[in-house]
């Protein structure tokens, strides 16, 4: 993908550029809001990553100006403003997603992947398969090496979420959002607890652990 990063902090911008380039994207980094608007209006970017507070032009106005000019490339806000109303403002201005600083690079790449996948979601997929795991989206049957695994509804949701993103690191925040619809960090061990329950069912009776913990980053389902 061709991505524009509008971020006034040079070091952060550089890390994001490097991280996304490592994922195979083409990335331009711009530190000024007005300049970013000029670039975004002209260049045909597939995605814009926009900091909300920037010199020249703030991110909110930038996105509004782009939307008014019928530039409809998806936008992810990076922001230091994390309250509920700030998020509402951001999404209201026309952003597609919203990440509060400090964020994990893994989360940014995962959200980019989610946005990139969006149009293809309509495809008729009835079964997910990751390594020895199979999940039938219609009958809701889950098997590993052919052995049936009984899952609670939330465990099923969680496994489905991971199986749709094999090999990709998922952060706690993303799992909370996907499984419980919670967009804040409730500072509980709820994710850890539910992960360990899921693991007890899909991994424990078998020889190899598929669902792995990356401390300080998140969780990943290895194929």
């Amino acid at each position: 993908m061709k991505i524009l990063v509008a971020e006034d902090d040079p070091e952060t911008g550089e890390y994001v550029r490097k991280g996304l380039a490592g994922e195979g994207h083409m990335v331009d980094h711009i530190a000024d809001g007005r300049e970013a608007l000029a670039h975004a209006s002209g260049g045909d970017y597939d995605l814009l990553i926009v900091d909300r507070m920037m010199p020249g032009l703030d991110g909110l106005s930038l996105v509004r100006a782009l939307r008014a000019a019928k530039v409809d490339a998806p936008v992810i806000f990076l922001t230091a403003l994390g309250s509920v109303s700030d998020k509402v403002d951001g999404l209201g201005a026309g952003a597609d997603d919203y990440i509060v600083k400090p964020f994990a690079m893994a989360e940014l790449t995962a959200r980019i992947a989610a946005i990139a996948r969006r149009p293809k979601l309509q495809a008729e997929i009835t079964e997910l398969e990751v390594g020895p795991l199979r999940l039938d989206l219609i009958t809701r049957a889950v098997t590993r090496n052919g052995r049936t695994i009984d899952l609670q509804p939330r465990e099923f949701l969680m496994l489905k979420y991971f199986m749709e993103r094999p090999g990709r690191v998922q952060t706690r925040t993303m799992i909370l959002d996907a499984v419980w619809g919670i967009h804040f960090d409730p500072k509980t061990t709820v994710v850890e607890t539910h992960i360990s329950r899921l693991r007890a069912k899909i991994d424990k009776p078998f020889d190899r652990a598929l669902l792995q913990t990356l401390h300080g980053v998140g969780y990943v389902l290895q194929p």
Partner: peptide, 12 residues
């Protein structure tokens, strides 16, 4: 948040 972001991206 800006320095925390840098720090996080540097460590991660």
């Amino acid at each position: 948040r800006s320095p925390l972001t840098r720090l996080r991206l540097r460590l991660e």
